[in-house]
Design a protein around this nucleic acid. Structure first.
Lengths: 350, 350
DNA sequence: TTGAAAGCGATACCAT
DNA sequence: ATGGTATCGCTTTCAA
């Protein structure tokens, strides 16, 4: 038996050498290829062989080396998730869902938390060497950056972003529709003096929410709303609500915020600093449906994103693209779910 | 020149073969080892060689393959982060900090979000094949599971957990001290009827907070507090506060909650359902110092965990253990920072 | 079904 | 400083 000679140097420091498939093969008295086959689902192995190998593997504590497997097979079973703003209350749930779902597909998650959307380039440089099978991007990417994916044939699915005019796969929540629902309900309840606390200009989602709201307000014939730009934080919601109160003559009676956290900040500002309570004195609505939107002190009227369905879609899409390389891109848009709260005078229905 | 023959099969589907160091070597007219060296920091290469290789690499769009590198070098530059409860408001910040800090060390993060602490075994099985250089565990592990790390010589640092009586490295916040501070301040302000809304029994951190609070209350000679067990959620805080109100005869005047989110739930229950406002009618304190603890509607009195320092310590420790295998274990305990809020009658100082 | 041998794309070591 | 070669641990033909 011409067994390959292996110069296993017994470590001086007592670091145990991990058991390899060769060790298992020798122990079981079979070939190394046989061992490999036993760990490959759907390979052709006799029951006898499998039992023997598994027993040997068990005894030696063999654990297949995913790195070596990746190298030869060309599949790392790794996906990267890029998230630009992890501390945004909305993302932890998304991230947890995504990792758990990928896990069910035998795929592990490399996490990249960008400090800012500007980190994307550096992050991509960190991603490429690992030869990930695909990427979920909950971060803004430029057309050039998207081009880098195509160049490398790395499947990409945007989460709640998209490149308008570019055929990239994405899973989104219909921001325009949500914004219209909010404006309509507020209008129907009698509101005419709207104000908008928008997201940062670089947030596509925020811009969509803002723009759609403005358009709808205009369509309905209400006055042009003042528009203030925040950064999605509680503090900015609070500060901008203050700002709105400065112009005593035309204070708004309905404030549309680009996310729940700013809406919460606004509610606090109105109540604490001005004694204005929602929904009696002023109406405030948000977007997302994050956990705290349900807290009794706020009880937000908002548009909830169907996170479970969206993450499921994202994972399914990416896995399909990985398994079937030629697949055409696809955009999936989910409607937001109106979440009736008590922070606004609001009328639904026709 | 006896160049190794490589059977690069041009893909039928048009998937580009990634450029390898051999391609770069050929293009630059140098050896493959030379290319490798040029990408290894601190290797001995002449400027001329480096320029030539880098130019060739640039032209071909070469990107080193981290997988191949890991296989031969025995270092994956991967660490796993296990988090049991990502949707706990406290963890996203921790996770973001950790990944960013590791990133600065050239280390990437494999994320494992456990559905429950019971998932740990399965998660470990998923981790081992990737030959991670180390693990940060913000999840409960049994002594047997910790033993698996030792068996494999995989460095492990617990974050906010530890195995009492076991010499595992960890970074923690001093829960006992924090609990004492809270009890003392409440006591000094005149409170005598305490109640505790504790965490789930499997949470070591929660148990420590609870136990230390009880002990201190006893030391000070106040009545034994009722103890209710929650699950760290807003809803459980809310529900347990309700529970406390049922026993009209001896309603507490100070409620110590095992985390901020439950404290927030309790505050809402007291206010909304019973018209009790903090701090006038009742005092409520929490633990953690999460973002919402600062929200004006709650303005919690709590013990903030020094997340930046703790994550920095965790990363530093793990990196040291990775780079210097024999290193002894170390436990680092940070004091929580008292965060004065308006949710409790409280007196600090001597 | 099984085994032998050829890589995957790097690093490490040893000459030169 | 540079090149040659063995090797990491596995999957994948290809024969038997």
């Amino acid at each position: 038996m011409a067994e390959k000679t292996r110069s296993k140097i017994v470590s001086i420091k007592g670091a145990r050498q991990p058991v390899t498939s060769y060790d298992v093969a020798r122990h079981a008295g079979v070939s190394q290829s046989a061992v490999s086959r036993c760990f490959k689902p759907g390979a052709s192995v006799s029951k006898k062989m499998r039992d023997r190998v598994m027993k040997a593997a068990e005894e030696l504590g063999y654990e297949p080396n995913a790195i070596a497997r990746s190298l030869i097979s060309g599949r790392s079973n790794l996906v990267a998730i890029m998230i630009s703003n992890l501390t945004n209350l909305y993302y932890p749930e998304v991230l947890a869902e995504l990792t758990q779902r990928f896990s069910e597909h035998g795929v592990r998650v490399l996490l990249f938390a960008l400090r800012s959307e500007a980190d994307a380039n550096e992050t991509l440089q960190q991603i490429w060497p690992y030869r990930v099978d695909g990427v979920i991007a909950a971060a803004e990417l430029s057309p050039e950056q998207v081009g880098e994916f195509e160049k490398r044939d790395v499947p990409l699915v945007f989460y709640n972003r998209h490149l308008t005019g570019s055929p990239v796969s994405s899973v989104c929540c219909d921001q325009e529709d949500g914004a219209r629902q909010l404006v309509d309900g507020l209008f129907k309840a009698g509101h005419r003096r709207f104000a908008i606390i928008a997201g940062p200009p670089e947030s596509v989602v925020g811009v969509e929410r803002k723009t759609a709201a403005i358009e709808r307000i205009e369509e309905l014939g209400a006055d042009d709303p003042p528009i203030l730009e925040g950064d999605y934080s509680y503090e900015s919601g609070f500060a901008l609500a203050e700002e709105l109160m400065k112009h005593k003559k035309k204070r708004p009676d309905a404030v549309i915020c680009a996310n729940d956290v700013m809406a919460i900040g606004a509610l606090d500002a109105f109540r604490v600093n001005h004694g204005l309570n929602a929904p009696e004195d002023i109406s405030v609505v948000g977007f997302d449906g994050v956990g705290p939107s349900h807290w009794k002190s706020y009880n937000l009227t908002t548009i909830r994103q169907p996170v479970r369905r969206m993450t499921e879609a994202a994972v399914t899409m990416l896995m399909a693209m990985i398994e079937e390389p030629g697949l055409p891109n696809e955009k999936r848009v989910f409607s937001g779910i109106f979440q009736a709260g008590g922070s606004a005078q609001f009328e639904t229905g026709n």
